[in-house]
Computed example of a mutant assay.
Amino acid sequence: MTDDRTHVQDFFSVRAADWDSRFPDDGPAYTAAVEDLRLRRGDAVLDAGCGTGRALDALRAAVGPEGTVLGADLTPAMLETAVRAGRDRSGALLLTDVARLPLRDRSLDAVFAAGLISHLAHPGPALRELARVVRLGGQLALFHPVGRAALAARHGRAITDDDLRAEPRLGPLLAASGWRMDAYVDEDHRFLVRAERVG
Protein backbone atom coordinates (compact mmCIF):
# COMPACT_ATOMS: atom_id res chain seq x y z
CA MET A 1 0.00 0.00 0.00
CA THR A 2 1.36 3.39 -0.91
CA ASP A 3 1.81 6.19 1.59
CA ASP A 4 -0.93 8.14 -0.22
CA ARG A 5 -3.48 5.39 0.37
CA THR A 6 -2.39 5.01 3.99
CA HIS A 7 -2.79 8.75 4.55
CA VAL A 8 -6.36 8.67 3.19
CA GLN A 9 -7.26 5.65 5.29
CA ASP A 10 -5.80 7.23 8.42
CA PHE A 11 -7.68 10.48 7.79
CA PHE A 12 -11.06 8.82 7.35
CA SER A 13 -10.68 5.93 9.83
CA VAL A 14 -10.68 8.24 12.85
CA ARG A 15 -13.64 10.21 11.48
CA ALA A 16 -15.85 7.35 10.25
CA ALA A 17 -17.96 6.77 13.35
CA ASP A 18 -19.28 10.33 13.58
CA TRP A 19 -18.96 11.37 9.93
CA ASP A 20 -22.71 11.48 9.25
CA SER A 21 -23.51 13.32 12.48
CA ARG A 22 -20.96 16.01 11.59
CA PHE A 23 -22.85 16.80 8.38
CA PRO A 24 -26.49 16.00 9.21
CA ASP A 25 -28.07 18.38 6.69
CA ASP A 26 -26.33 17.16 3.52
CA GLY A 27 -28.97 14.60 2.50
CA PRO A 28 -31.03 16.86 0.19
CA ALA A 29 -27.89 18.08 -1.58
CA TYR A 30 -26.84 14.49 -2.29
CA THR A 31 -30.30 13.66 -3.61
CA ALA A 32 -30.32 16.71 -5.89
CA ALA A 33 -26.84 15.87 -7.24
CA VAL A 34 -27.91 12.30 -8.01
CA GLU A 35 -30.97 13.67 -9.86
CA ASP A 36 -28.64 15.84 -11.96
CA LEU A 37 -26.81 12.69 -13.08
CA ARG A 38 -29.96 11.77 -15.07
CA LEU A 39 -29.80 8.06 -14.35
CA ARG A 40 -32.36 5.74 -15.91
CA ARG A 41 -34.05 2.71 -14.43
CA GLY A 42 -31.87 -0.33 -14.97
CA ASP A 43 -28.60 1.63 -15.15
CA ALA A 44 -25.40 0.47 -13.46
CA VAL A 45 -23.78 3.17 -11.32
CA LEU A 46 -20.74 3.38 -9.06
CA ASP A 47 -20.43 5.66 -6.04
CA ALA A 48 -16.65 6.16 -6.15
CA GLY A 49 -15.22 6.98 -2.73
CA CYS A 50 -18.64 6.28 -1.24
CA GLY A 51 -17.54 6.76 2.37
CA THR A 52 -20.48 6.02 4.66
CA GLY A 53 -22.75 5.54 1.65
CA ARG A 54 -24.82 8.69 1.91
CA ALA A 55 -25.61 8.66 -1.84
CA LEU A 56 -26.50 4.97 -2.11
CA ASP A 57 -30.20 5.28 -1.26
CA ALA A 58 -30.69 8.06 -3.83
CA LEU A 59 -28.75 6.10 -6.44
CA ARG A 60 -30.89 3.01 -5.81
CA ALA A 61 -34.06 5.09 -6.11
CA ALA A 62 -32.82 6.46 -9.44
CA VAL A 63 -31.94 3.12 -11.07
CA GLY A 64 -34.71 1.08 -9.45
CA PRO A 65 -34.55 -2.52 -8.25
CA GLU A 66 -33.46 -3.71 -11.70
CA GLY A 67 -30.41 -1.42 -11.71
CA THR A 68 -26.97 -2.01 -10.23
CA VAL A 69 -25.53 0.19 -7.48
CA LEU A 70 -21.95 -0.23 -6.27
CA GLY A 71 -20.15 1.72 -3.57
CA ALA A 72 -16.35 1.66 -3.55
CA ASP A 73 -14.15 3.02 -0.79
CA LEU A 74 -10.58 2.59 0.40
CA THR A 75 -11.31 2.84 4.14
CA PRO A 76 -12.79 -0.18 5.95
CA ALA A 77 -14.13 1.96 8.81
CA MET A 78 -16.19 4.09 6.42
CA LEU A 79 -17.74 0.99 4.83
CA GLU A 80 -18.43 -0.46 8.28
CA THR A 81 -20.32 2.72 9.15
CA ALA A 82 -22.28 2.38 5.90
CA VAL A 83 -23.27 -1.16 6.89
CA ARG A 84 -24.31 -0.08 10.39
CA ALA A 85 -26.53 2.57 8.78
CA GLY A 86 -28.12 -0.13 6.59
CA ARG A 87 -26.96 1.47 3.36
CA ASP A 88 -25.54 -1.81 2.08
CA ARG A 89 -29.17 -2.71 1.32
CA SER A 90 -29.11 -0.11 -1.46
CA GLY A 91 -25.85 -1.19 -3.08
CA ALA A 92 -22.98 -3.67 -2.97
CA LEU A 93 -19.95 -2.29 -1.11
CA LEU A 94 -16.42 -2.81 -2.41
CA LEU A 95 -13.27 -2.25 -0.37
CA THR A 96 -11.00 -1.03 -3.15
CA ASP A 97 -8.95 1.83 -4.52
CA VAL A 98 -10.90 3.75 -7.18
CA ALA A 99 -7.66 3.94 -9.17
CA ARG A 100 -7.72 0.11 -9.51
CA LEU A 101 -11.31 -1.04 -9.77
CA PRO A 102 -12.21 -4.74 -10.02
CA LEU A 103 -14.71 -4.01 -12.81
CA ARG A 104 -14.87 -4.80 -16.53
CA ASP A 105 -14.25 -2.16 -19.18
CA ARG A 106 -17.36 -0.11 -20.01
CA SER A 107 -19.50 -2.03 -17.53
CA LEU A 108 -21.12 1.06 -15.96
CA ASP A 109 -23.46 3.77 -17.13
CA ALA A 110 -22.36 6.39 -14.61
CA VAL A 111 -20.08 7.29 -11.71
CA PHE A 112 -21.03 9.52 -8.79
CA ALA A 113 -18.14 10.85 -6.70
CA ALA A 114 -18.76 13.04 -3.65
CA GLY A 115 -15.66 14.76 -2.29
CA LEU A 116 -13.40 12.28 -4.06
CA ILE A 117 -11.36 14.57 -6.28
CA SER A 118 -9.82 16.43 -3.33
CA HIS A 119 -8.49 13.21 -1.82
CA LEU A 120 -6.83 11.77 -4.93
CA ALA A 121 -3.05 11.98 -4.77
CA HIS A 122 -2.94 11.22 -8.52
CA PRO A 123 -6.22 12.45 -10.00
CA GLY A 124 -5.34 11.86 -13.65
CA PRO A 125 -4.86 8.09 -13.39
CA ALA A 126 -7.91 7.78 -11.12
CA LEU A 127 -10.12 9.68 -13.58
CA ARG A 128 -8.79 7.50 -16.41
CA GLU A 129 -9.69 4.41 -14.40
CA LEU A 130 -13.21 5.72 -13.87
CA ALA A 131 -13.40 6.37 -17.62
CA ARG A 132 -12.28 2.80 -18.31
CA VAL A 133 -15.26 1.30 -16.51
CA VAL A 134 -17.90 3.65 -18.00
CA ARG A 135 -19.47 3.13 -21.43
CA LEU A 136 -19.12 5.78 -24.10
CA GLY A 137 -21.74 8.44 -23.47
CA GLY A 138 -21.88 7.53 -19.79
CA GLN A 139 -21.84 10.16 -17.07
CA LEU A 140 -19.57 11.33 -14.26
CA ALA A 141 -20.67 13.61 -11.43
CA LEU A 142 -18.03 15.19 -9.18
CA PHE A 143 -19.93 16.58 -6.22
CA HIS A 144 -19.46 18.31 -2.90
CA PRO A 145 -22.31 19.64 -0.73
CA VAL A 146 -20.57 23.01 -0.41
CA GLY A 147 -18.68 25.04 -2.99
CA ARG A 148 -14.96 25.72 -3.18
CA ALA A 149 -15.03 29.05 -1.33
CA ALA A 150 -17.24 27.75 1.47
CA LEU A 151 -15.08 24.65 1.89
CA ALA A 152 -11.87 26.70 1.97
CA ALA A 153 -13.40 29.00 4.60
CA ARG A 154 -14.44 25.97 6.67
CA HIS A 155 -10.75 24.99 6.79
CA GLY A 156 -9.50 28.53 7.39
CA ARG A 157 -8.00 28.94 3.93
CA ALA A 158 -8.57 31.29 1.03
CA ILE A 159 -9.77 29.99 -2.31
CA THR A 160 -7.03 29.86 -4.95
CA ASP A 161 -6.95 29.39 -8.72
CA ASP A 162 -4.54 26.48 -8.40
CA ASP A 163 -7.23 24.43 -6.62
CA LEU A 164 -7.67 21.21 -8.58
CA ARG A 165 -11.43 21.83 -8.65
CA ALA A 166 -11.09 25.26 -10.28
CA GLU A 167 -12.73 25.08 -13.72
CA PRO A 168 -9.57 26.05 -15.69
CA ARG A 169 -7.67 23.17 -14.06
CA LEU A 170 -10.39 20.55 -13.87
CA GLY A 171 -11.66 20.88 -17.45
CA PRO A 172 -8.33 19.99 -19.11
CA LEU A 173 -7.69 17.24 -16.56
CA LEU A 174 -11.03 15.64 -17.37
CA ALA A 175 -10.42 16.03 -21.12
CA ALA A 176 -7.06 14.28 -20.83
CA SER A 177 -8.72 11.43 -18.91
CA GLY A 178 -11.52 10.52 -21.32
CA TRP A 179 -14.22 12.94 -20.15
CA ARG A 180 -15.87 16.04 -21.59
CA MET A 181 -17.11 18.55 -19.03
CA ASP A 182 -20.78 19.34 -19.67
CA ALA A 183 -21.62 21.41 -16.59
CA TYR A 184 -19.69 23.25 -13.88
CA VAL A 185 -21.45 24.67 -10.81
CA ASP A 186 -19.51 26.20 -7.91
CA GLU A 187 -21.85 27.92 -5.46
CA ASP A 188 -21.72 28.24 -1.68
CA HIS A 189 -24.27 25.46 -1.24
CA ARG A 190 -22.97 23.04 -3.89
CA PHE A 191 -20.12 22.03 -6.13
CA LEU A 192 -21.12 19.87 -9.08
CA VAL A 193 -19.30 18.98 -12.25
CA ARG A 194 -20.98 16.73 -14.78
CA ALA A 195 -18.94 15.13 -17.55
CA GLU A 196 -19.60 12.67 -20.37
CA ARG A 197 -17.42 9.71 -21.29
CA VAL A 198 -15.99 10.34 -24.73
CA GLY A 199 -13.79 8.28 -27.04
Rank of each mutant, 00 (worst) to 15 (best):
H189F: 00
T68G: 08
S118Q: 10
G49M: 02
A33I: 00
C50M: 09
V34P: 00
T31H: 05
A175W: 07
A110N: 08
T52V: 04
R190W: 02
P172M: 08
P28N: 05
G49A: 05
L140G: 12
S21Y: 05
R22M: 13
R89D: 14
D25I: 03
R60H: 15
L164I: 15
Y184W: 09
S118I: 09
L101F: 12
D188H: 11
M78G: 03
C50W: 09
V198Y: 04
F11P: 01
T68Q: 14
D26K: 06
E80Q: 14
A110S: 11
W179C: 04
S177N: 06
T31A: 15
G49V: 04
A77F: 11
D186L: 00
S107K: 02
P145Y: 08
A126R: 05
G171L: 09
R40H: 14
T160V: 10
A17H: 14
G147L: 08
D57Q: 15
R180K: 06
R148K: 12
M78F: 03
R41F: 05
A29G: 13
E80A: 15
T6R: 15
W19D: 09
Q9K: 12
D4S: 15
M1N: 10
A176S: 12
A110M: 09
R22S: 15
E187R: 15
P145Q: 09
P168Y: 05
S107I: 03
R190Y: 03
D4L: 13
D20W: 00
L140R: 11
A195T: 03
E167N: 10
L101N: 08
R128C: 05
Y30Q: 12
G64W: 08
L59F: 08
D182N: 00
G53I: 09
V14Q: 15
S90F: 14
V34I: 07
G91L: 01
G137A: 02
L173I: 06
